[in-house]
Simulated scan of single mutants.
Amino acid sequence: MTCSSSSSSSAAMRFAVLGQKDAMLRALYELAQVKRTSAIEVIVISPSNAATIPHSANVVDVCASLGYRYILGSTNEVVLEALCDFRPDLLISILWPRKVSKQMLDACRCCINFHPSLLPRHRGSLTQFWTIFEGDAEGGTTCHHMVEAFDAGRILHQVAVKVSPSETALSLSLKIAAATEQCFQHVLGEFLRSDGKLSE
């Protein structure tokens, strides 16, 4: 199966980002680099507009500075309406805290998720805790195609980080945020080089 965009070469490619926290903000800045040289449109949907880490950037301010449309996705109905209206070529989920429904997936031409573990280990939530609790030598980020089941789609790319003996959930989260940025750069580059296609 190939996940592909049907946008014409003259049309702006549309990206919808569902997410939160530092890992999502890093992805927004990466998309800004693309926007400098390519015609793209970006909408950003987050479950909260508050900074999740003290002194970190506010997603509303970041979107305003980068020229992205921001939507507060307080309910699944709001998210679905936004996606159906925008019809993104690529839906990017980064630490989205709620299930993405089949209706949401069907509104997008291609859907990928960045999950904070090395799948298939530690599907679901609290991945940093389980990585440390299980004594894993490595944690990391996995990008995979999104399907209805949680964290079950075909894996596209992974970036691993070492887990130190003194690791905490917070310190591992910071490492994984950096790994997510690297993973995002790789997958986004593949998507753009292949003219909007990600092969399974």
Rank of each mutant, 00 (worst) to 15 (best):
residue 58 N to M: 11
residue 71 I to C: 05
residue 34 V to Y: 13
residue 89 D to F: 04
residue 57 A to N: 13
residue 87 R to F: 04
residue 51 A to M: 04
residue 104 M to L: 05
residue 102 K to Q: 15
residue 71 I to W: 01
residue 52 T to F: 02
residue 50 A to N: 12
residue 42 V to K: 03
residue 86 F to V: 02
residue 63 C to N: 06
residue 75 T to W: 06
residue 70 Y to Q: 04
residue 91 L to M: 15
residue 50 A to C: 08
residue 79 V to G: 06
residue 61 D to I: 03
residue 45 I to M: 05
residue 77 E to Q: 12
residue 47 P to V: 08
residue 101 S to G: 07
residue 45 I to A: 01
residue 56 S to H: 13
residue 80 L to D: 08
residue 65 S to M: 04
residue 52 T to M: 02
residue 63 C to P: 01
residue 92 I to D: 00
residue 59 V to N: 01
residue 65 S to G: 04
residue 78 V to M: 11
residue 101 S to L: 07
residue 52 T to W: 00
residue 67 G to K: 04
residue 78 V to K: 11
residue 61 D to T: 13
residue 70 Y to F: 15
residue 34 V to T: 13
residue 79 V to A: 09
residue 90 L to P: 02
residue 91 L to W: 05
residue 70 Y to D: 02
residue 78 V to Q: 12
residue 77 E to T: 12
residue 41 E to H: 13
residue 48 S to L: 06
residue 70 Y to H: 14
residue 46 S to Q: 06
residue 73 G to P: 00
residue 94 I to G: 01
residue 40 I to L: 08
residue 38 S to A: 13
residue 78 V to C: 09
residue 105 L to V: 07
residue 34 V to D: 03
residue 77 E to L: 08
residue 90 L to S: 10
residue 55 H to V: 03
residue 41 E to T: 12
residue 46 S to M: 05
residue 103 Q to R: 13
residue 61 D to K: 13
residue 101 S to W: 02
residue 52 T to G: 02
residue 38 S to M: 12
residue 54 P to T: 10
residue 89 D to V: 08
residue 98 R to T: 09
residue 82 A to L: 08
residue 57 A to D: 13
residue 47 P to K: 03
residue 39 A to H: 12
residue 51 A to N: 10
residue 96 W to V: 04
residue 75 T to H: 12
residue 57 A to W: 00
residue 73 G to T: 01
residue 36 R to F: 00
residue 54 P to D: 11
residue 35 K to H: 13
residue 91 L to A: 08
residue 63 C to V: 04
residue 91 L to R: 11
residue 75 T to F: 09
residue 81 E to F: 01
residue 62 V to S: 03
residue 54 P to Q: 09
residue 72 L to K: 05
residue 41 E to Q: 15
residue 47 P to C: 09
residue 60 V to I: 15
residue 67 G to C: 04
residue 51 A to V: 04
residue 36 R to K: 15
residue 60 V to F: 10
residue 38 S to F: 02
residue 98 R to D: 08
residue 46 S to T: 15
residue 63 C to D: 05
residue 39 A to E: 14
residue 51 A to Y: 00
residue 44 V to W: 03
residue 77 E to R: 03
residue 74 S to C: 09
